[in-house]
Amino acid sequence: MVLTRRVAIAALVTTTLVAVMQAPAGTQGATGTLRGRFALPAATGHDHRPALIEPRVAPRPRQTRVGVVYLEVAPSEAFEQPVAARQRMDQRNETFVPHVLAIRTGTTVDFPNSDRIYHNVFSLSPTRKFDLGRYAVGRSKAVRFDRPGVVRVFCDIHSHMSAFILVFSHRYFAVTQPDGTFQLPPVPTGTYMLAGWYEGEVRANRQVVVRSGETTVADLPVP
């Protein structure tokens, strides 16, 4: 009997927690869909120095560039649940995969080395400075990101390796598809400023109005 009561309480607590975490911020239930297309700028030039002495042995796969679309000012709950998620940024063929990772504060990112050579992942960004040292294939090190902001990630050994981690204090963001299309998680009704980020810069923003139960299409052209 005691066991049954405990199970019931545990189930209730779990259900409540899940409901709170799943519910949109602000006015629960009054949400709308926000989707659109971020016209990704043309790819800029190579972001690494020429191979003056050692040629690249194998051409690295051309990574698809994507953007990140997010609400600049987002509604937040009085008691926002901290996330304890884990994400992964791999190192393959002397490339960070994915090139852009968008996460929430509190997320821990694993940096496994899937190459046959050493890598040394580090960042000098004020949002999160870290240096994981050199480690070989099969090993992984992790970093937890507790502050919102942009973190530029590099490899100390291979100057051509770079990536971005965007850390948000809310959940209203999305990494675009390669063609620029995006859809944010259900957004509470209201008026917001939508921003489009690409390769280190906010390239576009616009005001959007989200109405309850409606789908708002908000394209982000480059100014």
């Binding site: 560039r65 063609d179 480059v222």
Partner: peptide, 20 residues
């Protein structure tokens, strides 16, 4: 016009831009 201009830009990642 904006959509028309945006479409080829978005596609540039999948296939490198011609002429550049």
């Amino acid at each position: 016009a904006a959509m028309a201009a945006a479409a080829p830009c978005a596609a540039q990642e999948a296939s490198p831009p011609r002429g550049n």
